[in-house]
Amino acid sequence: MVLFNYLKSTILSKVVMAVTGVLLVLFLFGHMLGNLQVFIGSEAYNSYSQFLQSLGEILWLIRIVLFIALVLHIITSIRLKLLNRCANPTRYEVKNYVKATLTARTMIWTGIMIFCFLAFHLAQFTLRITDDESKNMKDMNDKNYSMFLKDPRGSVEINKDKYFYAEGIKIMKERHDTYKMVVKGFRNPLISLLYVVAMVILVFHLNHAIQSAFQTLGLNHPNYWPCIQRSSFWVSLLIGIGFCLVPLSIMLGFVGAGV
């Protein structure tokens, strides 16, 4: 396929790794910020969730872009790994690394682990197939949808959304209770532990990945390179901590006590 011609070039392969990596990191950052809304409360969290759902085609566009990025990231990394194995078939009897960090040397393994985690994560919270109950968690939003409703005692279905008459004259829309799902999900210590461990691995991966992307894309200058290397560490740590805060807070009862 013409599309995969870039794989013939080691440098273009690396560029694809870097560009797709940057996209995935940007997504992670946004995802983390979204997750942190759990601290504001269920209303904000569910509204955010609903907002994402309401994006419709745009959401699918984002999903497709991320999916392609992920697939290219994985295909390219496997291809590079095989190539590199082939380029250095005889290993040293003794090998001492001078500059190569542990994180750099374990990218393929941390990558594989993150991929496995991702599969589980999507199954749990996006496809919601790990727990039957989570599919049916419903919540009502508080926006006024009276324009849709002719009969104040009944309900109506528009574009597959259900609208209810409730609390006096307020019309509410039924939506998925993401907040409850997350809180219930993380109440399970095993799941929380899994997430925390996965995030530690993610930090490992990103620590090398972020600065590596800059280097690959040719952005290395002595004036700002030390800053990139430091930022790479702090940004990956920030993302890791940001994600971990949610399960930890739920486990410790700071969040979702009322669910």
Binding site: L80, K99, Q211, T216
Partner: peptide, 26 residues
């Protein structure tokens, strides 16, 4: 092989050639 930014090359280089030249090459 391909570069995975280990920077072992820079560490081993007896003339201390910087990996920023690899960035430039990219």
């Amino acid at each position: 092989g391909a570069c995975t930014n280990y920077y072992e090359c820079e560490a081993a280089c007896p003339k201390e050639i910087s990996v920023r030249f690899i960035a430039k090459m990219n």
